Amino acid sequence: MARLTRAQQQERTRAAVLAAARREFAEHGYAVAKIDRIAERAEMTRGAVYSNFPTKRALYLAVLTDLVERSADEAGQADGSDGTDGTDGAAGITGTAGRVPRPTPGSVADSLGAFARVWLERLPLTGDSPADGHLRLRSLSGVLDDEPARTALAQTARLEALLLALALESYSPPGVRRVRLAELALTLLNGSAGLAETAPGFGDPFDVARACDHLAGIDLADSWDPPHLPYVSPARPCDDPWAPPAEVSDRITGRRIGLGDDGVIAVLGAGRLSAAEEAVRGALPGDRVTVVVVTGDPAEIGRLVRLRVDDLTACLRRVFAPGAWPPLRLVLDDHALVAAALGLPGVGDTTEAAVRIRDGRIVARAEGRGAAHAAAAAGSPDATRHGGAGA
């Protein structure tokens, strides 16, 4: 029998710990779960568990992330897709055939309703125990009890709304912003999940999905006009070499990508993710916009961002055709490899920096509030007026 490599043994150990932890959390819930019992279930020492997951919260978030990944894989296998090509394939309230109707191009209401139906599949089933139901719901109740984690969750929720909005905008007239609509829909969906957790059986998910259909008809007076942008310092022109790291994973498509294309790369800490929209709205036609997320706490904050983003994008891929996916790339840079290649040492949750890439060189840099928009606007005819750098 072939001997396992160190990496293979580590992966086997990690998988065993995750399986044991999922059983423990499903039986006892997050608050009552014990690392000692998880170690016993996995037939390992307490130290072996902590060598892979430094805290109980990190382990719980890893269990939820693994659950999201498995759900996405199963959804893809249900209809023969790989879960990353935008094909259908749903269960639960989507119907006995397990397929979500593809939204009609131009129909924001239909696409939002289809998204809601996929999202609501996580609601607990009859007979689920409270603790197991919490896992199905990806519940974070009682888990995020400190300010950095709560801030990261709030900022990640803003990013989730942006991603959903950009998909909805692909079915909207040019120039129409759908961020407030996405925020409202996600508020309704997360509220229904909260009630399912605390008041099981209350409400009908079909009604919630139909309500999301009708949200698209509300005039939310949505516009993009952040008051701070006129005061943002212009990006600094430069001519620096750009040697990006090897291929990284785009969390939106689920595929490996390179970072050598012309465009904008915004490096945002987990506490500044709302600035992603500045890069998107300020980008020039034809730009590749890449948002790179960094954190000073990959084990917990990094896993939290990964959990929420992967959960949201898995739903998007099942509902929207590839041409309607958000027009940006999202990289989770847990080890700050992209940031280091850009010459940004010491990044953390409050980082906000951006560069413009042209012909394989870094031609503009910006840091601080508004950096993403400044770098995106660099080179445009009205760059000075909008806080960019002249070409």
Rank of each mutant, 00 (worst) to 15 (best):
G282W: 02
G286R: 05
G286I: 07
R288F: 08
V289R: 00
V289S: 09
V291Q: 00
V294T: 11
G296F: 06
D297I: 09
A299C: 10
E300P: 08
I301G: 02
I301E: 12
G302K: 07
L304M: 09
V305D: 10
R306S: 15
R306L: 14
L307P: 05
V309E: 12
D310F: 04
D311S: 14
L312D: 14
R317N: 13
R317C: 08
R317D: 13
A321W: 07
P322V: 09
P326I: 10
P326M: 10
P326T: 14
P327N: 14
L328S: 10
D333F: 01
H335L: 14
A336F: 01
L337E: 15
V338T: 12
A339C: 04
A341W: 03
A341E: 06
L344I: 11
P345M: 11
G346S: 10
V347L: 08
D349Q: 11
T350Y: 07
T351Y: 06
T351H: 06
A354P: 03
V355R: 00
R358N: 13
D359M: 04
G360H: 02
R361A: 15
I362N: 08
A364Y: 11
A364E: 04
E367C: 09
E367T: 14
R369D: 13
R369Y: 14
R369T: 14
G370H: 00
A372R: 06
H373P: 06
A374M: 00
A375W: 00
A375L: 08
A376E: 06
A376K: 03
A376Q: 04
A377W: 02
A377E: 13
G379D: 09
S380A: 14
A383H: 02
H386A: 09
G387Q: 00
